[in-house]
């Protein structure tokens, strides 16, 4: 029998590092086009004059940031890195996670981004001085390429996350209540108008990752499942009736979008998670 050598595509670790470094900077300097469009369109529909003015200033902020290579926000976030690694990729001349760490280190240093990571979070809280380590989520997928997404996540919104192990009987209404309550309690803190990431199903750990992944979807693009899309629409309408408004100063634009991701779960479980994203909704991606 003749063995056929697998055809592996080689990708150099240093190219991964360089890509991550660029993504960290671009995500912090350039507001996503979809978000910019959503902010502009909200300016037309926002009921509060003060809210309209806040939205105008956020658009102006994005223009200044891009022109001057200044971070959109001084909180340049925890670098959350999503990797989709093709199973036919062979990484050469280095280690994948070391390369991602090197990319974050370089991106945050070269880009004059704020370094916010501290070690020993419950006591010394010593700044690591280069914003490492990132939080890395890896998936192995078909193909011979690597998709890298950088999501710098600010603490103001991350601190308002919620997880609930609902009872199966709590059903759809239980999920809606949880999300609306999370947004209501968060008030001004997560920097609305928000992108509301919702996870439903899986396990306690899995559901929070679903909620975070929901933030990666283009702003306002509905879930392909019509039932989930309907749920997103209903939650968005409910949230925008809370009156919180841009930066919590009152108004009709509390969220720009609700994105829900759903996964099967155990017969005894209905996990639901909320991961809020601020109005800058920073993320950038590349393929190698």
């Amino acid at each position: 029998m003749r063995l056929i050598a697998p055809k592996l595509r080689e990708i150099k670790a240093r190219d991964i590092a360089e890509t991550v470094a660029q993504l960290c900077q671009r995500a912090n300097f350039e507001l996503d086009e979809g978000v910019l469009a959503a902010l502009k369109s909200a300016q037309q529909t926002e009921e509060s004059p003060l809210g309209k003015e806040v939205l105008r200033q956020l658009v102006e902020n994005a223009q200044i940031a891009e022109r001057k290579n200044l971070p959109l926000c001084q909180d340049c976030g925890t670098a959350v890195i999503f990797l989709e690694v093709g199973q036919d990729v062979h990484i050469i001349e280095g280690d994948l996670y070391q390369a991602v760490n090197e990319g974050v280190r370089r991106g945050y240093t070269q880009g004059y981004l704020r370094k916010s990571m501290v070690s020993q979070p419950f006591s010394a809280r010593k700044n690591t001085k280069d914003n490492t380590p990132p939080v890395i989520h890896t998936e192995i997928v078909p193909g011979d390429r690597i998709r890298i997404i950088c999501l710098p996540k600010g603490a103001g919104s991350e601190n308002m996350s919620k997880l609930a192990m609902l009872r199966p009987g709590d059903s759809r209404e239980g999920v809606i209540d949880l999300v609306v309550r999370a947004v209501d309690e968060a008030g001004a803190n997560p920097c609305p108008p928000l992108i509301v990431g919702v996870g439903i199903g899986a396990t306690a750990d899995g559901v929070m990752l679903l909620a975070k992944k929901a933030l990666l979807r283009p702003v306002g693009k509905p879930n392909p499942d019509p039932e989930v899309a309907e749920l997103e629409k209903e939650i968005l309408a409910r949230v925008n009736k809370l009156g919180i408004g841009p930066l919590g100063l009152g108004g009709s634009t509390t969220a720009l979008a609700v994105h829900a991701e759903v996964w099967p779960t155990h017969i005894a479980c209905l996990p639901a998670a909320v991961n809020l994203q601020c109005h800058s909704a920073r993320h950038k991606e590349a393929r190698l």
Binding site: V54, Q57, L58, N61, K68, L72, C73, Q74, C191, S280
Partner: peptide, 25 residues
């Protein structure tokens, strides 16, 4: 305005360190 850090920085004309330099930012 939260998240308008680039815009707000335009009004800051001078920065002097006062204390706790080891705390960085």
């Amino acid at each position: 305005i939260g998240g308008a850090g680039a815009l707000l920085a335009q009004s800051i004309k001078k920065v002097e360190l006062v204390a706790y330099e080891d705390l960085g930012t």
